[in-house]
Simulated scan of single mutants.
Amino acid sequence: MSNQEQPLLRVKGLTVRYGNGCPHCIGGGRLNKNTCPECKTVWACKDVGFELYPGEILGVVGESGSGKSTMMKSLYFDFPVTKGEAYLGNYKDGKEDIFHQNLQQKKYIRNHIMGMVYQNPVLGLRMDYSSAGNIAEKLIASGHREFQGMTDRALMLLKAVEILPERMKEPPKNFSGGMQQRVQISKALANNPAVLLLDEVTTGLDLSVQAKVLDLIRKIRQEFNISILLVSHDLAVIRMLADRTIVMLDGQIIERGLTDQILDDPQHSYTQQLVHSLL
Rank of each mutant, 00 (worst) to 15 (best):
L9I: 04
V11I: 13
G19A: 12
H24R: 10
I26V: 14
C39Q: 08
T41R: 03
T41F: 03
W43E: 04
F50Q: 03
P54F: 14
E56F: 02
E56S: 09
I57H: 07
V61P: 08
E63M: 07
S64I: 00
M72C: 15
S74C: 11
S74Q: 12
L75N: 13
L75Y: 05
D78Q: 15
T82A: 06
T82Y: 02
A86W: 10
A86D: 08
Y87I: 07
G94N: 10
K95M: 13
I98E: 06
F99N: 10
F99R: 06
H100M: 06
L103G: 14
L103Y: 13
Q104A: 15
I109E: 01
I109W: 06
R110L: 10
N111V: 02
M116N: 08
M116V: 09
P121D: 01
L125I: 05
R126M: 10
M127V: 10
D128N: 07
S131C: 13
G133P: 08
K138T: 14
I140R: 09
G143W: 11
G143N: 05
H144F: 13
F147C: 13
A154G: 10
A160E: 09
V161T: 05
L164F: 04
E166Y: 08
R167T: 00
M168A: 00
S176T: 03
G177W: 03
G178I: 00
G178W: 01
Q180S: 01
S186M: 06
S186W: 04
A188F: 14
L189Q: 07
L189R: 05
A190N: 01
N191P: 10
V195W: 11
L196A: 12
E200V: 05
G204N: 12
S208W: 03
V209H: 02
V209I: 05
A211L: 01
A211F: 00
A211G: 06
L216R: 02
R218T: 08
K219V: 05
I220P: 04
Q222E: 11
S227A: 11
L229Y: 05
L230C: 01
L235D: 01
L235G: 00
M240Y: 13
M240S: 11
R244K: 13
L249C: 13
D250M: 11
Q252S: 15
I253F: 07
E255H: 10
G257V: 09
L258P: 10
Q261H: 12
L263V: 12
P266L: 12
H268Q: 11
Y270P: 11
T271L: 04
L278W: 06
L278S: 02
L279E: 09
L279M: 09
